[in-house]
Computed example of a mutant assay.
Amino acid sequence: MEFPAYLATMPMHAITEIHGEPGLRARFRLEIEAFDETARGRLTAAEELAAALHRDDRRVREPYLNHLLRVAIRMMHHYQVREVDVIVAGLLHDAVEDHPAELAGLRRCPTGAPAAADRTDAAEPTGAALAVLADRFGPRVARLVGAVTNPVYDPGRDRHVQYREHVAASLDREPWARVIKVSDFTDNGVGVIHTTGPKVARSAAKYRPLVPVFRDLIARPDTPLSAPVKRHIFAQLDLAEERFSAILDQPN
């Protein structure tokens, strides 16, 4: 498929609307040209694994892979991230949460059959899935994915409150995980206007209280981003907050 020469500078949601998943995958390939051959191989392997795991998943109007590609592209293009482990973790940030059993089942012995020690008990899929990521991409990738993977929530408490508590606690000790999560948050928050139906208000109610949490996390000296990138993120958080308010503060 032919894509315009200016694909490398198009806004990601414009690529999504006009060219869909093929366009985002092409843009991803353009972005990883800045890396060496070994890094490109790891990034391509992570993209292919994400595509396989999420092949049947959708986000309202689009394949779920689009979201994962935008998270990774945003980190490379807008955040100037060159840490391959971080981008790999960005591509796979929902893999353990959404497909732990499938991911855990990918660890195999040389015969091709699942290794006896790797057959996952339904109660412990997350640890086995993270172990597969550690085997394939290294322990740092697994640690970063673990930091942005939601825990099992207490059904007796508000899920949104527990989500905010988890984000604040897990990102407090993982500076690079903050970078992944804020790209994810930007795609969900600023991109809320690209969502339709009841999910719009639900997403706005879930994410608006997180804006000050992310402001604090990104502003910290140990968050490994340049000052211009941090200013860009703050502007995106401002825009997300404006959109959440427009959705939630409408007069009855």
Rank of each mutant, 00 (worst) to 15 (best):
69 L>G: 00
86 V>K: 00
135 D>H: 00
28 F>K: 02
102 E>M: 11
120 T>G: 12
51 A>P: 12
14 A>I: 06
34 A>P: 07
59 R>M: 12
84 V>G: 04
119 R>N: 14
151 P>N: 05
14 A>S: 05
200 V>H: 08
214 F>V: 05
136 R>E: 13
93 H>N: 14
243 R>N: 03
131 A>W: 02
176 W>T: 09
12 M>K: 09
130 L>V: 04
251 P>S: 08
240 A>S: 09
249 D>N: 01
195 T>E: 11
75 M>G: 03
109 C>V: 09
60 V>L: 15
70 R>F: 13
249 D>T: 01
145 V>W: 01
217 L>I: 00
23 G>Y: 10
130 L>A: 09
241 E>T: 04
114 P>R: 11
163 Y>Q: 09
243 R>C: 06
246 A>C: 01
170 S>K: 11
193 I>R: 15
13 H>S: 11
111 T>I: 14
231 R>C: 02
95 A>P: 00
249 D>F: 06
94 D>R: 10
191 G>L: 01
241 E>L: 07
170 S>W: 15
32 I>H: 14
164 R>K: 15
125 P>W: 00
225 L>Y: 01
227 A>D: 14
122 A>G: 14
244 F>N: 02
238 D>Q: 07
114 P>L: 12
200 V>N: 09
18 I>C: 13
252 N>T: 15
44 T>H: 06
84 V>A: 08
106 L>N: 12
203 S>R: 15
158 D>L: 00
242 E>G: 00
89 A>C: 02
232 H>Q: 02
16 T>S: 10
92 L>N: 05
198 P>L: 15
55 R>F: 11
242 E>W: 01
144 L>T: 04
159 R>C: 12
202 R>I: 07
249 D>P: 02
194 H>E: 06
250 Q>A: 15
237 L>T: 11
143 R>C: 10
49 L>T: 01
233 I>W: 13
167 V>K: 07
211 V>F: 08
48 E>S: 07
249 D>A: 03
239 L>C: 09
232 H>E: 10
53 L>I: 03
91 L>E: 10
187 D>S: 11
130 L>Q: 03
190 V>N: 05
91 L>H: 11
117 A>T: 13
23 G>T: 05
174 E>L: 03
125 P>T: 00
6 Y>T: 11
251 P>M: 08
198 P>C: 15
52 A>T: 15
1 M>S: 13
199 K>C: 10
101 A>S: 09
184 D>W: 00
47 E>F: 04
224 P>W: 12
79 Y>P: 03
55 R>E: 12
41 G>Y: 04
251 P>Y: 07
130 L>N: 03
12 M>T: 06
87 I>W: 06
113 A>P: 11
194 H>K: 14
41 G>W: 02
189 G>H: 09
63 P>L: 00
228 P>F: 10
189 G>V: 05
71 V>N: 13
234 F>G: 08
252 N>C: 15
128 A>T: 04
142 A>M: 04
54 H>Y: 02
219 A>F: 10
59 R>D: 12
128 A>W: 02
200 V>Q: 06
18 I>G: 09
232 H>L: 11
196 T>P: 14
51 A>S: 15
215 R>H: 00
2 E>Y: 15
1 M>D: 06
